[in-house]
Amino acid sequence: MFDWRWDFTFQILPRLIVATGNTLLAAGLGYAIAVVLGLALVLAQRTPFRPLTVVVREAVEFIRSTPLVLQIFFVFYVGPQFGIRLSPWTAGMIAIGLHYAAYLSEVYRGGLECVPKGQWEAAKSLNLSTARTYFRVILPQALPPSLAGMGNYLVGIFKDTPMLSVIGVAELMHTANAIGSETYRFLEPFTLVGIIFLCISLPTAALIRLFEAWVRRKLGMG
């Protein structure tokens, strides 16, 4: 009953490795979008312009309270009804980027709240502009306390990329599933997928901790 076939394993491995590239690309692109967009979301919530802060706040809550897979479907299948036709990759990146941007904006918010009030006051007393205050004084100090949360979501987005398979992005899960459908063998492809995810997630988490320490040292806050 436990019928593991090594020859089959090695035969499908190259295909899965190529797909791993796609998974990493999807996670990387999605995360890059999320990192930048998340910052925009948190900064928008701190402007004195009330309507904007309320709308962004509610949007973030909405995204965080609904499933990612629904958001992926929504962008991909509902978009065309409004004339927005996107490729699976584009739709997927928008959906997953937006989803994680909402989460990261909350991480940043926590990081920003870690910066003592006195830092804002010192920046003001030196007459620094708002932009300069954020980018040179506050955000660098908000970064170290945000890194652990950011790292969690990096691993999180990586593990969530299989959801993109539902709209046909040829990442790991999609490829393993395709191999299964073609050969009626699911044990090896899905096991390999699990091992590949594990082999990437574990070292990533460790690297993030090293990176955190490095950033603190670099900022003289070690």
Partner: peptide
């Protein structure tokens, strides 16, 4: 509390 910028 001085409020120097700690990363500079």
């Amino acid at each position: 509390h001085f409020n120097l910028f700690p990363h500079m």
